[in-house]
């Protein structure tokens, strides 16, 4: 593989994706550099979630190209497992494994997928629990945790695989307003540590605060993109202006 740090970590070119006759993505392109934080915003059904689910091959692609660290995702010979070891993902519905404790949720993948030493994995898992401020919840089952706590466990679980890029799919959309912040600050710390992050979000203030670049999607295309200040204060496209007018 001839990828190096100065090339985009994720490079999407003319991506098309349909579900049957319904074309959800109609030619999307974007580049994300190492350490960059990008936010994708836009109305429901504009293809935001589909877009980031294509990056770790949860959705297949009809046309176009996604390179993750130089590895082509739109390739039937793709080793999905190798790709997913490098791409972490956090979901709207947390999707923790309910039959495992918080600590076990975090430890499972490193143990079973990466085949790491148990003692080391446990040490790492405890560090991660601490990082997302959930000390004391190690042995709780997901059902015993609040939504915000579950989501932080989910972030820690994903981080345990030591990914190079993290995908966040509307991770605060299912949370109570008072727990949104605890999840957002966990993501913020992650971004400050230099993790490459791609977020689909409806939290505009948060997007403005942490993003290096904002993409606005509507009806399967990227309508407008730019650095947060330019994007929020100086939007050009009427659709962006309308959307921001509704939401801010």
């Amino acid at each position: 593989m001839t990828w190096s740090d100065d090339q985009p970590m994720v490079s999407i070119k003319d991506l098309h994706k349909s579900f049957g006759a319904l074309e959800v993505l109609k030619g999307v392109s974007m580049d994300v550099m190492k350490g960059e934080v990008i936010c994708i915003i836009g109305p429901s059904g504009s293809g935001k979630s589909t877009l980031i689910r294509c990056i770790n091959a949860l959705n297949d692609i009809q046309q176009g190209s996604i390179l993750v660290e130089g590895r082509e995702v739109n390739d039937h010979k793709l080793d999905k497992l190798e790709l997913r070891k490098k791409v972490g993902m956090v979901f709207q519905q947390y999707n923790l494994f309910p039959h495992k404790t918080a600590l076990e949720n975090i430890m499972m993948a490193p143990l079973l997928v990466l085949k790491q030493e148990k003692a080391e994995v446990e040490k790492l898992a405890r560090q991660l629990i601490k990082k997302v401020r959930l000390e004391g919840k190690e042995d709780n089952y997901p059902g015993e945790l609040s939504g915000g706590q579950q989501q932080r466990v989910a972030i820690a679980r994903s981080l345990a695989m030591n990914p190079d890029v993290m995908l966040f799919d509307e991770v605060t959309a299912a949370l109570d307003p008072e727990t949104v912040n605890e999840v957002l600050s966990a993501i913020k710390e992650l971004a400050q540590d230099g993790m490459t992050c791609m977020l689909v979000t409806h939290e505009m203030a948060f997007a403005r605060e942490i993003a290096d670049h904002i993409y606005f999607t509507d009806r399967g295309v990227i309508v407008e993109h730019g650095p947060p200040d330019t994007f929020f204060d100086d939007a050009k496209d009427p659709r962006t202006i309308e959307f921001l007018g509704q939401i801010l």
Partner: peptide, 13 residues
């Protein structure tokens, strides 16, 4: 829920 499959798959299981 299908999320269980997706979460597990995204962890490279």
């Amino acid at each position: 829920p299908s999320g269980q499959w997706e979460a597990a798959e995204s962890l490279a299981f």
